[in-house]
Design a binder for these strands. Sequence first.
DNA 1: GTGTGACTTAAAGTCCGTT
DNA 2: GAACGGACTTTAAGTCACA
Lengths: 73, 73
Amino acid sequence: MRKRFGQAVRDVRAKRGWSQERMADEAGLHRTYVSAIERGERNVSLDNIEKLATALGTPIAQLFVAAEASDAA
Amino acid sequence: MRKRFGQAVRDVRAKRGWSQERMADEAGLHRTYVSAIERGERNVSLDNIEKLATALGTPIAQLFVAAEASDAA
DNA sequence: GTGTGACTTAAAGTCCGTT
DNA sequence: GAACGGACTTTAAGTCACA
C-alpha cells in the first residue's frame, strides 16, 4: 500500500505541475522525504498524510480511493 | 484528524461487535495501542492504518470518508 | 473491557551532499 | 528535477503495570 499511496501522491502532484521541492514546501516536509514517500520507501504517519492531502487540496479519502483503485495486491 | 480517524475505527469496530482486544488480535496490534489510537492519542502510520482497515474488512478510503465526514475542523 | 503513564527500541523525518 | 547515501535528531511502535 505504501507504493500505491506514494504513486497517488505523485500523480496528484504532477497534475498540479509541482516539483517535489515545491510539494515539500507546501506540505512543510523535507524534499528528500517527499521523494522517499513517492517511491513507497517510507511508512508515512497520519499527520503527514494529512499535510500532503491538505497541500494538494485533496481529501485524504480521495488519495486512498486512487491508491486502492490500482489494487494489484 | 487523529481523533476523527480513531472515532471512525471505533465506530466500525463497534458495528462488528468487537472488543478492543478482539480488534487488536485481528489486526495484529496490541490492545492498549488500539485503545490509544481510538482516542486519537497516537499518530498512526500507513502500515498500521492498513492493518486496521484490513481487519475491519473496510477499504482505507472508506475509513477516511467517515473521518472526514465529521469534519468540524 | 478500557484508559493511562511510563518506558525501550525501531523507524520516521531532517539535513548535508553526490550522481 | 529527481534518486540516492550517510549521519543525525525526533517520534511512532510496541509493551507493561495498574487503575
